[in-house]
Each structure stands twice: as structure tokens, then as C-alpha cells.
Amino acid sequence: MDATTPAVAGGFEPRITAFVCNWCTYTGADLAGTSRLQMASNVRIIRLPCTGRIDPMFITKAFERGADGIIVSGCHPADCHYNAGNYHARRRFAIFRELMDFLGVDTGRITFSWVSASEGGKWRDVVNDAVTRVRALGPFTDYRKLVVDPVATATGVVPPEHVGKEVPA
């Protein structure tokens, strides 16, 4: 299915949070706009100065808040506005991705890309691909099920009957 085709009524529309750097990908997304490149509307961008600023905690928090997919995107190697932020991010997220995979998160939900300020078209493709992929994976209910357990919060102990169950907050 093409990402830009409107989903069937009531069909699953993934929610994707994108963490992007200000200088390359954010500007590339601006260019996609100026060039009027149409793309799926499922992505919400959070702007950071640099991929170096992007913390793995942002991603776990976004999943906690119901994101079905994540995009992390910044400047190509050697293009970082701050020289090396993307190199540090590359190591950080290489490890993070393997960790998530090991913990059983389908890494198809997390997209990493280098999109430069001139790559409006690439940004559109990254967005559409991510949306198509995550749509196929379905809602990330597994993560959403990891809800706050009121009993556990109050008593400090998870009651056995709540283990692995969806418990109303």
C-alpha cells in the first residue's frame, strides 16, 4: 500500500514521532514543503539542534506515549553543523537499535536516516517508507500495554494477576 493513499475508514494509521536535527533534516523537511512534495501525514517532528542531542530516553518516552514508530534523522557524515554530533549519535543509536532488537522491539519501528538540507525528496521517501512499514507492523500495543499499574504504584508490588495485563491507569 502506498503511504499517501488515505487509509480505509477506521483502518490503522500509525503515529510516528521524528527527532531531527535543525540544520539538515529539519531544513530538508522545509525544502520538501517549499517544493510541495506530498507525503503521509502521520509524522510529527520534534526539532533538536543536532542528532548529538537526541537521547534514547526520548524514544522510550515516545513509545510510552503511544508512538507506533520513530524516526531519527540528521546530517550526513562529514556534514554535521557541529562537526561530530552525528558521529556520536551514530554510535549511540547503533547500540540502542541492537538493544531494542534484543529486547524484542521490531526495529522496523525505528528508522534512522541521514537527510541533508537539500534532500527534500529523500525526506518524503523516508517518511512514506516509515509509515508504510509501521502500518504493516500494526499498532505498537505491546509497548502501550506497559501501563502504569495503580496497585503497584500504591503498594510498590505488582499484584500477580496484573502481570502482563492491560491495567487501567
Binding site: 533538536l48 543536532c50 548529538g52 561530530a84
Partner: peptide, 10 residues
């Protein structure tokens, strides 16, 4: 400082 924030994420 140029304000990249790499330090904070690290």
C-alpha cells in the same frame, strides 16, 4: 559552546 547538546545526551 556552540549549543549542539551532544554533551547532554551523553
Amino acid at each position: 559552546c556552540q549549543g549542539c547538546g551532544t554533551c547532554q545526551a551523553t
